[in-house]
Nucleic acid binder design. Structure first.
Length: 295
DNA sequence: GTCCAGGTCGCGC
DNA sequence: GCGCGACATGGA
């Protein structure tokens, strides 16, 4: 069992479950045990099963990482697991400024000060981009189906339980037969976006993962992700959130319906007027909206 | 059959 | 810059 520590306040279960990602393959939220389970393919090629849970540790919250594998992990593999979990759970981001700002805004403040805001993300930006493309212009049920089929068809199997698979790498997606996408994975017109992006990554013409560590402004990151086919403003702002920038709102049917209902008595307004509702939150607009809509 | 879902692209202006 | 139709898929 590996361990990581998070400063309080931090609610593992709430943070992981505050958006849809724990329910997209290969993630699985095991509600009865409050465990996030996921198969992960390490850079050595070894495929492991991760089970994340939390325990109180006095001043901090302890993240427990149970690793199942075919054999013993090398020290480098262990380091990779720890780094990936740190990234997935956003353990290196600071939320104190957000909590301070939120105190004045009941009930948003009350909710987030339970230790919320570290929304779950994927170990690679590649996976988050594919998943974000899969949320556009479809229902959530269809999103889950597309991602599940993608994982089932192309992901590397976990040797100890081969029905469980990792998220496919860009190389695996690029090498797949387009007919498999068209007939089995069925992501619709997104098939070409996903395979095209995978090919760019394999070719080396696009280095997505560099964006995870690049010291870029939100505007620069937005420009970079919008150059991916299938990523418009909504998807770019979702990806900015995943990359730790909360200054832009994901304006989509969900946000419009929430703001229209809560602030405009059901009357139609422009996107600009809707966005103005959260202007006072500055660099934290995304999270303010997110927890405003939460209930 | 029609419409729409946590939109985006490519086109014409 | 803005408006518009097309777009794969599955469910109501």
């Amino acid at each position: 069992m590996l361990h990581l520590h998070v400063p309080k306040p931090y609610s593992f279960a709430a943070s992981v479950c505050d958006h849809g990602w724990p329910n997209l393959a290969p993630n699985q939220w095991l509600a009865d045990w409050q465990i996030l389970q996921r198969v992960e393919q390490l850079t050595t090629g070894r495929v492991v099963l991760l089970r994340l849970s939390s325990a109180d540790a006095g001043d901090t919250v302890c993240i427990q990482i149970a690793v199942q594998a075919d054999g013993t992990l090398t020290p480098m593999e262990t380091d990779e697991v720890l780094a990936k979990v740190r990234w997935m759970l956003k353990l290196d981001e600071a939320f104190a400024a957000f909590y301070t700002l939120a105190i004045a805004h009941d009930p948003i403040g009350r909710v987030v000060q339970q230790g919320r805001g570290r929304l779950l993300r994927s170990p690679t930006l590649w996976e988050d981009v594919v998943k974000t493309i899969a949320t556009t212009n479809v229902t959530w049920g269809n999103t889950k189906g597309m991602i599940q089929r993608l994982v089932d068809q192309l992901g590397a199997p976990f040797p100890l339980a081969p029905t469980l698979r990792a998220f496919p790498t860009a190389a695996q997606v690029a090498a797949a037969d387009p007919a498999l996408f068209a007939n089995v994975i069925r992501m619709g017109y997104r098939n070409a976006y996903v395979q095209g992006l995978a090919q760019e990554i394999v070719d080396g013409t696009r280095d997505l993962e560099a964006l995870q560590t690049a010291q870029l402004s939100a505007a620069e990151l937005k420009k970079a992700v919008k150059s991916i086919k299938g990523i418009g403003d909504y998807a770019a702002h979702t990806l900015l959130m995943l990359l730790g920038h909360y200054s832009e709102l994901p304006i989509d049917s969900e946000l419009r319906s929430h703001v229209t209902r809560r602030y405009f008595g059901g009357e139609t307004r422009s996107d600009k007027e809707m966005a103005a509702i959260y202007a006072a939150w500055g660099d934290w607009k995304y999270l303010a909206y997110w927890f405003d809509a939460y209930d």
